[in-house]
């Protein structure tokens, strides 16, 4: 498995990590069982996402994709932010190893869920609960040394 230089750079100098207190929208996605949990926080002013941060329990790919996704979201309207796809995230990182593609899906899901949560709160509804990612159907084989 090999990560691109862009992934490594993102991981090494991680931007936008942390929590936004009093966020306007929070998207909690992932599953600790599978090793990736991502929480995306957004702050929205005059229909523009002015701040976006993440907290991630996960691998290098999960951390790099969360960081990039939060960068992409900032300055956009919630509607524009919904157009960010995992494909775009992967392209901007010069690709991910195949078994890591689900991390980029998680980042896209996290943004969508944060925006959905923002709309709910605006309408006075209760915040969205954490979304547990479905159990994956990946090969559960370990590559061991022998």
């Amino acid at each position: 498995m090999k990560y691109s230089e862009k992934v490594m750079e993102r991981f090494k100098n991680t931007k936008n990590m942390g929590r936004i207190e009093n966020a306007d929208g929070i998207g909690k996605v992932g599953n600790a069982k599978c090793g990736d949990v991502m929480w995306i926080y957004i702050k929205v002013e005059n229909n523009i996402i002015t701040e976006c941060k993440f907290e991630t329990f996960g691998c290098v790919a999960a951390i790099a994709t969360s960081s990039l996704a939060t960068d992409l979201v900032m300055g956009k309207t919630p509607e524009e932010a919904l157009e960010i796809t995992n494909k775009r995230i992967v392209e901007m990182l010069d690709g991910l190893p195949p078994e890591k593609l689900h991390c980029s899906v998680l980042a896209e899901d996290g943004i969508k869920r944060a925006i959905e949560d923002y709309h709910r709160r605006k309408q006075g509804l209760s915040p969205l609960p954490e979304k547990e990612e479905d159990e994956h159907e990946h090969a559960h084989d370990h590559d061991e040394e022998k």
Partner: peptide, 28 residues
């Protein structure tokens, strides 16, 4: 998660391994 620790150590030349899924190509 283990992989992040391994990669941070790898930046400094340390070779170790992890029981994390992310280093094995599986999710378990």
């Amino acid at each position: 998660e283990g992989e992040g620790m391994l990669i941070h150590m790898d930046f400094e030349g340390i070779c170790a391994s992890s029981g994390s899924a992310c280093t094995s190509g599986s999710l378990d």
